[in-house]
Design a protein around this nucleic acid. Structure first.
Lengths: 128, 128
DNA sequence: TAAAGTAGGTACTTAAAAGTAACCACGACG
DNA sequence: CGTCGTGGTTACTTTTAAGTACCTACTTTA
């Protein structure tokens, strides 16, 4: 964020009222966020440890950060069972599901571009 | 990016083949990117200086970075006229336009959530 | 002659994000 | 008794991105 945005954010609530799209994109940005949502979307509710293993390579710190952020944004739901050992299950909240059509549209575009770029990168394949 | 992703990226081309969505999101992430696309989408083709003034607060360095990135991703088109002084005009490329439906859907969600959150934040408004 | 506008490039600094490693309580298991 | 697994937290380090300031070359204008 720029200093201009920062100072503006101190006066009003947040500069992103000019661009709410940014606020949502900020949720999806980090290196692991879409992975986490993808696992929850496709595999269903998951515990912390399962999530950590399935995402593969993520640290507990970052996973916690992401989950806290997604929870605060109400994209995921956190279910804490104070058993011994404690069981914490994360699931996709209704708001998370609201993103599905948009993410699917984005996925279509992304796959199409990927294919186009791959073909443009190696036209030699056509001759072989 | 994690070290696990990095080492994987050295073996294959890029880890993002697992998640092309990430690749597209990475284009839209930076603090100013959606602003720039927004200006180009709504105001039409713009010169570098115009863009810099209209975005408001962005530095020439970051604007250049973003435009180069968007140009490489073929979301914007760069038209360089070697006049004195040189005129460089940026416009939305076809691929940039392909994002429109998705961005509009994202905007709908973002606006809805913003409204919901604002109402949830101050329920006192209902009593007044 | 000096400033302003054209479209950036370069060097340096700073701030934020990500990664790494160690640690906690607790109980089961060997 | 020591380690594993639960779900994290904390402190520290590294990496990356962003910001700031100054520079180019050329022309027009005051």
């Amino acid at each position: 964020m720029s200093s201009a945005q920062k100072s503006a954010a101190q006066k009003s609530e947040d500069v992103r009222h000019e661009c709410p799209v940014d606020a949502v994109l900020r949720l999806l940005m980090g290196p692991w966020t879409t992975y986490i949502l993808y696992v929850l979307r496709t595999q269903g509710p998951r515990r912390f440890g399962e999530l950590k293993r399935e995402v593969g390579g993520i640290s507990a710190k970052v996973l916690t950060e992401r989950l806290r952020m997604l929870e605060e944004a109400r994209l995921v739901h956190r279910d804490y069972q104070a058993t011994i050992p404690p069981q914490v299950t994360y699931s996709l909240a209704p708001r998370g599901a609201e993103l599905n059509p948009m993410l699917d549209a984005l996925k279509d575009i992304a796959l199409r571009w990927q294919t186009e770029d791959a073909q443009a990168a190696r036209p030699r394949q056509a001759a072989e």
